[in-house]
């Protein structure tokens, strides 16, 4: 079943075509990888889907609803939440308080205090931040802040979570932990992920399907094995 349907999305910034005619469908329960060199348009695509910037043409349909004209908070309440490549914690609030805001305002709104606390606890456990719940979010390590980004998206009750380079800057052990976490979340919580990643190995092992962007255009769209054999992709990535 298609959860996210991107139909011919283009985005022009002045003379620059950041995205041209990108179409893709993400199925429910899938981990969908998005690859591309710097400036390929990955983050722009995220921003268009999450409602931060409007597409020049094309449309985004999530769970049967058109997202055109909806603000990011409305889109989040429909069950689609993104994280940021450059982390944006609520630095002055505690880790738990960061998640509590997400629980109170996300998809499952109008919660009782106990229900919200339960959601916060679950999200903390899911990413392994339970022991740092009272720490100010700004004092977490980078790895901790990346996990906080994911936990906050989970706490909104999103069905589809878009992760923007959550593994960049992590050491190999941390990447391994993160891979386990994401796989577990998918099965335990019945989540769908769209993942942008520079750590290609991670993306290859995690994704069911991968789309490769280059200068705003889709140049390949297939399974990880075939992407690995694709000459055009190799050319873009390795020259």
């Amino acid at each position: 079943m298609t959860l996210l349907d991107i139909k011919g999305v283009s985005k022009r910034f002045g003379g620059l075509m950041a995205l041209s005619d990108v179409s893709l469908q993400v199925n429910k329960g899938e981990i969908f990888g998005l690859m591309g060199a710097n400036g390929a348009g990955k983050t722009t695509l995220f921003s268009v889907i999450a409602g931060h910037i409007p597409p020049t043409t094309g449309e985004v349909v999530f769970d049967g609803k058109r997202l055109a004209g909806l603000s990011p908070d409305r889109i989040c309440r429909l069950g689609l939440c993104r994280t940021f490549q450059i982390v944006r914690p609520f630095a002055g609030l505690s880790v738990a308080e960061n998640l509590r805001v997400a629980a109170l305002y996300g998809r499952a709104r109008k919660l009782s205090a106990t229900e919200a606390a339960q959601i916060v606890d679950d999200a903390l456990d899911a990413v392994g931040l339970a022991d740092r719940r009272h720490l100010d979010a700004g004092r977490l390590t980078l790895s901790g802040q990346k996990r906080l980004e994911i936990a906050r998206a989970l706490a909104t009750g999103a069905q589809l979570v878009m992760l923007d380079e959550v593994m960049a800057g992590l050491n190999p052990t941390e990447v391994g932990t993160m891979l386990d976490t994401l796989r577990r979340l998918r099965t335990e919580r019945d989540l769908t992920f769209v993942i942008v990643e520079h750590v290609i190995g991670a993306l290859m092992t995690l994704s069911d399907r991968i789309l490769v962007l280059d200068h705003g255009e889709c140049i390949a769209f297939s399974t990880p094995e075939e992407i690995g054999r694709n000459e055009r992709v190799a050319e873009v990535y390795f020259g």
Partner: peptide, 8 residues
Amino acid sequence: AAQTIGVP
């Protein structure tokens, strides 16, 4: 970030 997690 607030808007992204659903805060109007």
